[in-house]
Design a protein around this nucleic acid. Sequence first.
DNA 1: TCTAAGTGCGCG
DNA 2: AAAGCGCGCACTTAGA
Length: 553
Amino acid sequence: MVLIDLDATGTATTTVTIALSDAPETIRAREAAGGVRWIWNDTRAWYAGLLSAGVRVARAWDLRLVHALLRDAAAVIDDHGLRAARAWDAALPDTLVVDTLFDLAEAASGPPDTAEAALEEYRRQRDVIDGSATPAALRLLAAAESAGALIAEELHAAGLPWSVDAHGALLERELGERRGQALPARIEEAAARVRAALGDPAASLDSQPRLLRSLHRAGLFVESTSRWELAEHDHPVVAPLVAYKKLMRLYTANGWSWMSEWVRDGRFRPVYVPAGVVTGRWASSGGGALQIPRQLRVAVRADPGWTLLTADVAQLEPRVLAAMSRDTALADAARGRDLYSGVVEAGAVATRAEAKIAMLGAMYGATTGESGRLLPRLRRTFPRAMALVDHAARVGEDGGVVSTWLGRTSPGPGEAWRAVQSRAGDAEASGIDETRARRSARDRGRFTRNFVVQGTAAEWALAWLADLRGRLAALEPVDAADAAPRSGPVFGRRPHLAFYLHDEIIVHTPSVHAEAVATAVRESAAAAGTLLFGSFPLDFPLDLRIGDTAEKG
DNA sequence: TCTAAGTGCGCG
DNA sequence: AAAGCGCGCACTTAGA
């Protein structure tokens, strides 16, 4: 089930159904001719196999992901029966996503997999978008989402270059030698120090309730065993316990067993889940791709003859907020410099630290503490930006939905939420009912407040990635002698995205292309800003580094 | 023996 | 123990 849209403008379609067995060669040939967009039920199902067969695809339309977007989008006026087509809600189970295309022919569940169903759904999606309140934005969002789905598979196929030696050296330095079943020596030593400080040689350190009781017996009256609370007390057990937790975390989350499970052939290949978060951010499944500790960055190493380019966007979310609210004061504060310094110069607050805390508080919905205290000053200086997030919060508290810049819409309030609110409105509602209702309303308000900003930032990042992907593909591949074969047949000879995390990317590139890649990364960031926000005067400055490791500065 | 929920911590 | 959003994973205990 594959269809080809032969019309680059996308207004008319000519479709061709391709047999699975012919797919790689047919698609390779049509790609070479150009101007093609592949329409398929689920990118994961198709693209992993194509990539391992050495076939790259320029453009696609992921019916499942676009269906999910349109199902919830507030801009949709006539859904043409889309919401009732529940079969498209099903994701392909992880167990069916394998590296060979052909094993998927008999997929037992997942979205519909006939050409007829796909064509019908595609036409419906086009109709829904064309007849919506914001067709241009939704079209862009659908294209960006689909590009993201391609990129997620490509990131997995290429992988992040990972040095087992550097990782192992770090583990030995921090934990000591690996000792089979037994804990490494440094962890045992830390545990012994904790038990000595507790005066309890048998104390259990890995069970939160038991550890808490041990701490109380030793005279440390904390309410939790979290590092934050421990650090506020002056007690001989604090330092060794914090050290123990730190080492144990490294050992269990990213130790030798993580390495042997997730690093294969010099590559870390996490599974990315595009739009896995309601806001449109990506999630990941397996390998903890989105939680790799900075400490482990030393293990990210370019192949010989290759180098790594790491780039992240400075203060992406407040910049996006400035653009979507058309707040020129905030844009002025951000343009050409560190946004937080600009906020200080605008006179809103006294220090950069205050600016950061206040701005994050505005986007997350802080009400108390330093952040809450600084908010009124931010509102005075940047009224439009603050009005946008305040309004999003109010809509959420009232049970409404909010949308990102391109039209991704938040989920509605659940049945449980409504029940809590309506109970508080009953004649015989108790004070507890009212408190609970108010609190859940506020909770939801903070969610919708953040949704519009986090979600629009995710859209900007998708636009950045999609644009960059095209620029990287246009660079000359290197000779076979300079190849990095572990990056796979498609990416072994050309610069490729190797990692992505919300506002940061790592590109693995032949060294000869490093400067060209840096230019491409900068230009694509600028292009993403223009694509989303037109001529609104705001830049998206990057912190960009080139080197053989991907350590952050 | 399985699942769900709680806790804590890593990332943005 | 986070005040203030969004995640995933490891480990434990409680409950069926």
